[in-house]
């Protein structure tokens, strides 16, 4: 009897434990107020500006823009690496991984936000509307392989509306297509500073940055940029393709 009672008691305990394990948790984590959209990534504080070297140290002259010559651009080969250009600039972070950080966990792919015409909403200023339309034209020209025409069109977008961030992104893209990787990176810096609150576009910026670094043969930076892009948007095809290409053949650049 005692053994039966003990068995019954143990069975009840087991059942109770099993029920506890299978039961749904009494409270669901509430959805974020923005209905499940990925919250904007929390950005780390900007790194402190790099201190200037002491007066008595011999210093290299500041890089001259004129060292990038027109002939270099026309040749479409990677522009010579200008010494000091990457690291001396106290504003630009030295590595893309140190710039805007994305959430550590890989979020679900973001919905496609690439339509520029969809951003022309009632109440938008005519300058922004015209700038977005021209940007859209420019992006279509890029898709059609007419990078030079696209560049001319896209330059007008920032004349009409210098606050249009997408214009800078597509200018970066046009420069990339023309083989001007340094100029592309410059435009990406500007685009990034204006697109911080848009993770879809931040992913695009990082992916294109990765493409530029890959073309310049800077494999590690390319990888870091692609990874960053995927953290913003795991569905970014450019970053995924770029990363897999690098992982397959790290020496394959400009492909």
């Amino acid at each position: 009897m005692a053994s039966v009672a003990r068995q019954v008691f143990l069975a009840v305990i087991a059942l109770a434990l099993g029920a506890y394990g299978c039961a749904p948790s009494p409270y669901r984590r509430p959805l974020p107020p923005n209905n499940g959209n990925i919250p904007a990534p929390r950005l780390p504080p900007a790194p402190p500006p790099a201190p200037l070297p002491p007066p008595e140290a011999a210093r290299k002259p500041l890089p001259q823009e004129g060292r990038i010559r027109e002939q270099d651009l026309k040749s479409k080969s990677p522009v010579p690496n200008i010494p000091g250009r990457e690291s001396k600039d106290s504003f630009r972070p030295s590595s893309p991984a140190e710039s805007s950080a994305a959430p550590e966990s890989a979020p679900a792919p973001l919905p496609d936000d690439s339509s520029l015409l969809a951003k022309i909403t009632p109440g938008i200023s005519p300058q922004r509307a015209a700038s977005l339309r021209l940007t859209d034209e420019g992006s279509k020209l890029l898709d059609a392989g007419e990078a030079a025409k696209a560049l001319t069109r896209l330059e007008k977008t920032i004349v009409i509306d210098s606050t249009n961030p997408y214009g800078y992104f597509y200018l970066a893209k046009a420069q990339y297509r023309l083989g001007r990787y340094r100029e592309s990176l410059n435009f990406l810096d500007i685009a990034e500073s204006r697109l911080r609150s848009e993770p879809f576009w931040m992913a695009e910026v990082q992916a294109l940055r990765g493409d530029n670094y890959r073309a310049l043969g800077q494999v590690q930076r390319a990888e870091a940029s692609y990874a960053q892009s995927l953290r913003f948007n795991s569905g970014n095809r450019t970053a995924a393709d770029g990363l897999s290409r690098l992982q397959a053949d790290p020496q394959s650049v400009n492909k």
Binding site: A46, E65, I68, N186
Partner: peptide, 15 residues
């Protein structure tokens, strides 16, 4: 086209 001089921008200060 013999020569094309494009806009060249560089972020040298934070916005």
């Amino acid at each position: 086209l013999l020569e094309k001089r494009d806009v060249r921008n560089e972020q040298v200060l934070s916005p």
